[in-house]
Amino acid sequence: MKNVLLPTDFSENAWNATKYAIELFKDEKCLFHLLNTYTPVIASSRFMATSLGNVQEGSMRTSSERGLEDVLSKIKKKYNNPKHNFNTISSFSLLVDEIKDIVEKRNIDLIITGTKGVSGLDEVFMGSNTVRIIKSVKNCPVLAIPQHFKYTSPTEIAFATDFNRFYSLSELQPIIDLAKAFKAAIRIVHVQYEIKALSEIQMFNLNMLRKYLNEVEHYVHTVSELNSVSKTLEVFTKELDIHLLAMLNYQHSYMERMTREPVVKRMAFHTQIPLLVIPELGMNVPSKTSQDSKNAVAD
């Protein structure tokens, strides 16, 4: 059974990500963990009675638990899939800290979260919470769903890479599983500042990548950089009607470069399609492939 973590703040944005998750895994046995965290505002006065803080915490806990019950009720009313089970977690904690803890303790396979371009320069990329989760969670992939994205089966998946790093099978497994499940084509996209031949190391890494992907349909695309990596990928995904963009997050990766790009360059890039960010796992982590993942797919 696949373990999927769904953080929610009860917004439309979070509900959209929840709907996407349920549709994506409609043919797989899944345990979805619905998480809501709450932290009372710290009182500015040092003379405030502790009891008042306890009352506030109790009220917020009740509100959190009721919110989770409402989400669960909406899910059961709309979907009621016998393959899906749900667990609710209401926690007095900071969101990222709680997510890291749950990923470890509950063997989470994937985090699916909503994104929205909030106003504020640092949050243009895809929302500060999403960026914090991606940067902080080192042992679990994160799938970020744009605020207004309507579910589409991901039959066209783009994997953005520069071939400068050797990938392990465990890192590529989430993409391979999705491709097999949806009979999807994987489009490996390499953004170059100026088009030139690959180095020996890049060729070796490309050949290894193609070996890992030998059981799925895949293509290699080399594209010239348009103003920034983020803008280039945005144009590429639109032109080829890509349903999901995947990237590995490691030092000097496209993902890291995009989160560091000058704000002016990335302002145009609002994640229009789901973005799967896979952490750097290295060679020693066994790939998490369940029998269900292998068999999951709809005809």
Rank of each mutant, 00 (worst) to 15 (best):
Q56F: 11
S73P: 06
G53A: 07
D97P: 03
K76L: 07
M60H: 05
K76V: 00
S73A: 06
L72A: 01
I99W: 09
V55D: 13
G127F: 02
G58M: 03
E57T: 12
G58R: 12
K76P: 09
T115K: 01
N36H: 15
V124D: 15
S51L: 04
V41W: 08
V41S: 14
L94W: 09
I75M: 14
T50K: 04
L94Y: 15
G67W: 00
L35P: 10
K116C: 14
L95D: 00
N87Y: 11
V131F: 15
L35M: 05
T115L: 10
S51W: 07
S119V: 09
R66K: 06
G114A: 02
S119L: 13
N87W: 00
Y38L: 06
E57S: 05
L72W: 00
P40T: 01
D70K: 12
T62V: 09
I89W: 15
S90R: 05
K76A: 09
T39D: 07
D122V: 10
S45I: 05
I102W: 03
N85T: 00
N36W: 05
L72K: 00
I75F: 10
S51M: 03
Y38H: 02
Y79G: 05
L94D: 06
V118R: 15
R132G: 13
S44V: 13
N36A: 08
K74Y: 01
G117S: 10
F32W: 04
E98G: 12
M48I: 03
T50C: 07
A43I: 06
T130L: 11
I108W: 01
V55F: 12
K74D: 04
N129E: 06
E57H: 05
D109E: 14
T113W: 10
K135A: 10
L68Y: 14
L34M: 12
T62R: 13
K105A: 14
I102F: 14
D97L: 04
N107Y: 06
R61Q: 05
G127M: 00
K116P: 11
T37W: 08
S63F: 04
L121F: 15
L52E: 10
S44R: 11
M48F: 10
D109S: 08
G53H: 01
S128C: 08
D97G: 03
G127A: 01
I75H: 08
G114H: 02
L52P: 01
T39P: 03
V118Y: 09
T113H: 05
G127C: 08
H84K: 04
K100R: 07
K100F: 12
H84T: 06
L110C: 14
S59M: 15
I99N: 07
H84N: 03
I112S: 09
R61N: 05
V55L: 14
L34G: 03
V71R: 06
K77G: 01
P40W: 08
R106G: 11
P40G: 04
G120F: 02
E69G: 07
S128V: 04
N80C: 07
F47D: 14
K105S: 10
L68G: 02
M48Q: 03
K116R: 03
L35C: 08
L68A: 07
S119D: 15
V124T: 15
M60Q: 02
I111W: 12
K76N: 12
F92I: 07
